[in-house]
Design a protein around this nucleic acid. Structure first.
Lengths: 224, 224
DNA sequence: CCAAAAGTGTTAGTGGTACACCCATGT
DNA sequence: ACATGGGTGTACCACTAACACTTTTGG
């Protein structure tokens, strides 16, 4: 923390990479992008970009999010900084990683016949080879998400404003990849005091309509 | 993550800064260093240094640790990366921070009359002004340590190889800044199965000698 | 009337918390 | 003998986990 501009300390490049999660079709998914150029041309990677000189790390992450998904208001959290000297074969690159949560409903779906290099992949069916150390980054992010789901209300980032308790339960189940008891789950969720009722609605037709709930506050809270 | 060497993306400097904890005299303390040069000349700061081009982030942290404390084998964990554009008034500096735990007994104590710019400060009696955003970094580190102490065996990093259960309890108490019930504490600790007995020893004279324990494994474990 | 998801309580076990006295030693 | 920390058990409470049937709707 002494001198900058010191010749001995030539500087690495800094990128921001994002692990963007959503839940759709009862499966936890991440957004991957197919690389066009070498190195790792054709391989899937997590979205990222270079840090601009005047922007904060968080702002860079928000910028990348918006570029790739069109969504700006999401749960976003710094994950870890990866900096093995050889993680990029070209030159030294330090990447500050983030993870983000987006409700599936908030995503503008891509035009049907549009060719795109972006795709959502189930976390339990990832491509065998990912670019750079992105597999390691993804594993780290999945572990963080699972841990936080168990002791916080972080899943609000994956849910629309109003939702059924069964939707909430399915989100939890897809994250931790385990089935939960319906009665105990509802009891526990309502006991947190973080939810409130709204009006009813019938969805998916032929059955008793479900009460829709919302989070009183859409912000991170640690439970207990 | 596309082109490097792109003119638009001039690179910030990268430093590694460390929050180094120990417990001494039943108080949680951090190592601070008094800055000799501007900016913030005379202010206390956490130890750090520039990342070298060929070394990993972890290696840089270990290097700084060894330089400042002489100790190499410690608990070390990446904390967070701070990168507000104006956090260093001179130029853009991104700092990857770590926190470290050292048993007080492992430190080679400085020669008594040696003038030094290094000093251990109680975390509840920090200087009002710290250099850069180091206050924010310290607060972040303290919170992380408190959280991890409550759900892991991380305190092994603050203890010598052999210790009394009352030492262990005092470490916990100084971290979370709360008193604990002796019987419940012992029950819980022994129930983890992470400790084992060694031989007896009498310390601090006039009372019944205490059994010394050790951690079966000196590695991070999440409890329950 | 049938299918499909919504909604609802009780019990047994487990883990956390509160709490007070005797023990082994040095001086 | 006294001062000092070492060491020990029990009872209550709260939370967790297991478990099955009725309700409301659409077709």
């Amino acid at each position: 923390m002494e001198n900058t501009n010191h010749p001995e300390y030539e500087q690495p490049a800094i990128t921001i990479d994002l692990v963007i999660f959503t839940v759709n079709d009862d499966e936890l998914k991440v957004l991957l992008i197919k690389r066009a150029q070498e190195p790792f041309a054709g391989a899937w990677s997590i979205p990222g970009g270079f840090l601009k000189l005047a922007e904060s790390l968080d702002d860079a992450a928000i910028r990348v999010m918006k570029d790739k998904t069109g969504v700006k208001e999401v749960y976003l959290e710094q994950l870890y900084t990866f900096g093995m000297p050889n993680r990029d074969p070209r030159t030294r690159v330090i990447t500050v990683t983030y993870f983000a949560l987006i409700p599936w409903q908030n995503l503008r779906q891509p035009e049907s016949n549009q060719v795109t290099d972006l795709a959502w992949h189930r976390v339990d069916q990832l491509p065998a080879q990912l670019a750079f150390d992105h597999r390691e980054i993804l594993d780290y992010a999945i572990n963080r998400l699972r841990a936080k789901a168990s002791y916080s209300n972080i899943v609000y980032g994956l849910l629309p404003l109003r939702f059924r308790l069964s939707d909430l339960q399915k989100i939890y189940e897809s994250i931790i990849d385990k089935e939960l008891d319906k009665r105990n789950f509802r009891k526990r969720m309502l006991a947190t005091g973080l939810l409130e009722e709204t009006g009813k609605k019938e969805l998916k037709g032929a059955h008793r309509p479900a009460m829709l709930y919302r989070f009183k506050k859409r912000e991170f809270v640690v439970l207990d």
